[in-house]
């Protein structure tokens, strides 16, 4: 209870500092939504040139991009800011976080909660809603449950990727943009049917790293479509398990990273 109160206080403080520059805040709020809008517009533009991508129609593709966008936007809002860890490590701000009586990760997230990304979440879920309406889904209890869990599992999965990518800074401060290959790259990867990707690249991202289970496999299960790549029909229901696995791995990497932290400067 005490901890929750502390977190709430931290969150409110961040909200107040963010809105202390009002004009910039509003521009950023809408600007950030624009980023998600463009992801969806890209899909629409591509489908102007072709009736199908990777064997999937526009309606089906929008369901995939909707699941991916909603999950990613949710993760980006709540956890995405952990990617600033490298600047905290470089500037030594992490020291101040570590001497407070709360776990470091939630503090870091709340210290800089990117409220400006809130509208992205709204937009992501609107697209998802439209996609669900546009597809003729045969609703079974299992599919309803899957529909409810998939965006959350996707958010948990992306959140874990954010944490793991950011933890890289504990070992390699100058990792620069490397993390975005997996965070934003992962979002781009999951925005399309994975049948568009070739050979080893698809194997690596979809199955070894698990991105195939974020949007593509659940979308197949919701649509009742067999996987052209041959995975069984129930594999779409694995997405919460894959997300749990990723979260467990992220926790281990984070803890190891904190132990490995070498504070710089005096």
């Amino acid at each position: 209870m005490g901890d929750l109160r502390a977190y709430a206080a931290l969150g409110t403080a961040q909200l107040r500092s963010a809105t202390s520059y009002r004009t910039s805040f509003l521009v950023e709020l809408f600007g950030n939504m624009g980023a998600t809008v463009f992801d969806v517009v890209t899909v629409l533009v591509l489908f102007r040139a072709t009736p199908a991508v990777g064997g999937f129609s526009l309606r089906e593709a929008v369901l995939i991009v909707g699941l991916s966008s909603a999950g990613f936007a949710l993760a980006d809002l709540t956890i995405g800011n952990v990617d600033r860890l490298k600047s905290y490590v470089r500037a030594g701000t992490l020291d101040a976080v570590l001497v407070r009586p709360l776990p470091a990760l939630p503090q870091l997230l709340l210290m800089d909660l990117p409220v400006r990304k809130a509208l992205r979440v709204v937009f992501g879920f609107v697209v998802l809603g439209l996609a669900v309406a546009a597809n003729d889904i045969d609703w079974t209890p299992g599919r309803v449950l899957l529909m409810a869990l998939t965006p959350i599992a996707a958010a948990a999965f992306f959140g874990s990727i954010f944490v793991i990518s950011a933890s890289l800074a504990f070992w390699w401060v100058d990792s620069g943009e490397l993390g975005s290959a997996f965070t934003y790259g992962g979002r781009d990867f999951t925005s399309y049917p994975i049948s568009v990707y070739g050979g080893w690249f698809r194997g690596l991202f979809a199955y070894a790293l698990g991105f195939g289970f974020v949007a593509y496999q659940p979308a197949l299960a919701l649509l009742g479509r067999p996987d052209p790549l041959g995975l069984p029909a129930w594999s779409g229901y694995l997405s919460p398990l894959v997300a749990l696995g990723a979260a467990a791995l992220a926790a281990v990497v984070w803890r190891t990273g904190i132990r490995h932290y070498r504070s710089t400067g005096s």
Partner: peptide, 27 residues
């Protein structure tokens, strides 16, 4: 080091974009 990291990221995004555009071209 940041140059190396950035190059890696550019290449990953290259794969992503290239595959998608080629899939569009195919159909």
């Amino acid at each position: 080091q940041a140059t190396i990291a950035g190059t890696f990221t550019n290449i990953v995004f290259g794969f992503l974009r290239c595959y998608v555009l080629l899939a569009v071209a195919e159909e």
